[in-house]
């Protein structure tokens, strides 16, 4: 499906993708929203810039974006994979509960807010560059990796993990001096501890043709919440 500068309603695009059995290539995409919403199978390749809520409620399909994404990529995603060959806007993977998202470059504010895990279902977000404020806010499970491929000083920003009560955030950085909320435990990853995360780093390297060795070099910090019941003491029965 080639857009040629024409605008299509989200429903037309999604109907065309479904008619093609889930496998489709969309060319010259320019801000069309809700692409591949809830899609269960197939591979959708997008050239251009898809609009907000790309792959919302995604349920098993794969989306490959040859360009940048906008806001709410993978909102409430349940299963499948999203690969973005560029950067994305705010609220990446809001309330995601399964599947994997790989972003080659940077992500905006509030990535991975509310992501949660249960049993086998464990969402993973891999960010190649850096992340904006409120990364992993209210995070209840799952894994976020910030690989900091450009080796910047602050790969994460203020309020990372605020309200977090489950899951893990792994950040590659020389020294983590970002202001972190006090309920977040920050610990340097030692020796073999990185092994748990290397499969995802490897997958990132393979997806984007990056050098695995360079991405695992240097220090890593692991952020986890210090309690899964953060609000227990706040209340008095009346």
């Amino acid at each position: 499906m080639k857009f040629n500068g024409k605008t299509y309603a989200a429903k037309e695009i999604n109907d065309a993708i479904k008619a093609a059995g889930g496998d489709a290539t969309l060319k010259e995409v320019l801000g069309e929203r809700f692409i591949a919403c809830g899609l269960k199978s197939g591979v959708v390749t997008i050239e251009g810039t898809p609009g907000n809520a790309l792959g919302a409620y995604l349920d098993g399909a794969e989306i490959r974006v040859r360009g940048n994404g906008q806001d709410a990529v993978g909102d409430t995603m349940n299963d499948g994979k999203i690969v973005v060959f560029g950067s994305v806007g705010d609220t990446l993977g809001y309330a995601m509960r399964g599947g994997k998202i790989f972003v080659r470059d940077n992500v905006g504010y509030r990535a991975g807010v509310h992501i949660k895990e249960y049993g086998e279902k464990k969402p993973v977000i891999v960010i190649g560059g850096r992340a904006g404020c409120f990364l992993g806010e209210y995070m209840a499970g799952g894994l976020i990796l910030v690989l900091n491929k450009e080796n910047v000083k602050d790969p994460i920003d203020d309020y990372t993990g605020v309200g977090m009560y489950g899951g893990k955030i792994l950040v590659r950085a020389h020294l983590l001096d970002t202001l972190l909320p006090k309920q977040i435990k920050c610990k340097r990853v030692e020796g073999q501890e990185l092994a748990e995360f290397t499969p995802y780093i490897k997958e990132y390297a393979e997806e984007f043709g990056a050098e695995f060795a360079a991405l695992t070099k240097g220090d890593f910090y692991l952020l986890t919440p210090d309690s899964s019941n953060p609000y227990k003491r706040l209340y008095t029965n009346n």
Binding site: K116, Y138, Y165, S228
Partner: peptide, 17 residues
């Protein structure tokens, strides 16, 4: 709810999107 046993379930005031 698809969250581990014993973990809190927090739905904050705003939808952050």
């Amino acid at each position: 709810r698809m969250i581990p046993e014993g973990s809190d379930a927090v739905s904050p005031a705003p939808h952050h999107d």
